[in-house]
């Protein structure tokens, strides 16, 4: 079977994000870029399926600038078989991402699409759902466990929902999005890194796909959370109540 895993290049969660002066984008100089952590979990899940089911092919897909090949190479080094990079310099919104994926599913014909539940840069949490809708495929989002049927015709997916777990049975082909506790991704091994160098990484200019990717939204403004200030000691309960009321305005 074939698994398509979607990979987004995002700033390292440990990076200190700075905003540009006009405030509608982030400063990208000196930012360390990584695979979106949820996508890394999706790759790991695909590799675990591959290890159990011989003959499985894991194909990575990223949409973005040429630099995203770094993240694809990392995924290949983890063990994926080949990668596709849809090249564009423009911002691609979730719906456009979903349309590109839909288009490539037409040629790649995977039985399973694994994606992260959301990208940690814009936190939209909708690309996976949109892909399923466009394709008319079943979807199981926020997966914390994926068990493939022996006949590879369906899967049981456990989802983390408020206050408990929900297990769904879905027929394939389907879209599954990964949550944090699905697995712990492996590191790329040194042999994996050296092998990745020779694996296929196909680049397709976005324009060639004939997909409508025109943005529907515009970022007006980004704001960083208020700077954390040090704590303060108060002398008495009386004073604490007063400060909470007068200054913090929480009571």
């Amino acid at each position: 079977m074939k698994i398509l895993v979607c990979v987004k290049r995002v700033p390292d969660p440990e990076t200190v994000i700075k905003l540009t002066p006009e405030g509608a984008s982030i400063v990208t100089d000196n930012v360390k870029w990584v695979i979106n952590p949820f996508d890394e979990i999706a790759i790991e899940e695909a590799l675990r399926i591959k290890e159990k089911a011989a003959g499985t092919e894991v194909v990575l897909l990223s949409i973005g600038q040429k630099t995203a090949q770094e993240q694809l190479r990392t995924g290949l080094a983890m063990g994926a078989d080949r990668a596709i990079l849809v090249l564009t310099d423009q911002v691609v919104e979730p719906l456009a991402v979903a349309r590109v994926i839909e288009k490539l599913v037409g040629t790649e014909k995977p039985e399973l699409i694994l994606m992260g539940k959301q990208a940690i840069d814009d936190d939209s949490n909708c690309a996976g759902q949109m892909v399923a809708e466009l394709l008319g495929w079943p979807q199981a989002t926020f997966a914390s466990k994926v068990v493939l049927g022996g006949d590879q015709k369906g899967a049981q997916v456990t989802r983390e929902v408020d206050g408990g777990l929900e297990t769904l049975a879905i027929p394939l082909p389907a879209v599954v999005t990964a949550d944090l506790r699905l697995n712990e991704p492996r590191y790329a091994s040194l042999p994996g890194i050296m092998k990745a160098r020779k694996k296929e990484l196909k680049e397709i200019p976005l324009a060639e796909l004939g997909v409508d990717v025109a943005p529907r939204t515009r970022i007006v403004k980004l704001e960083t959370p208020p700077k954390r200030t040090g704590g303060r000691k108060v002398g008495s309960v009386q004073e604490l109540v007063q400060v909470l009321h007068d200054e913090a305005k929480v009571i």
């Binding site: 190479r73 080094a77 790329a188 040194l190 990745a196």
Partner: peptide, 15 residues
């Protein structure tokens, strides 16, 4: 090289 950088990342994560 890209391979050296990727390898550094792996060792760093491990360490």
């Amino acid at each position: 090289s890209a391979e050296h950088l990727a390898f550094r990342e792996t060792v760093r994560k491990f360490v």
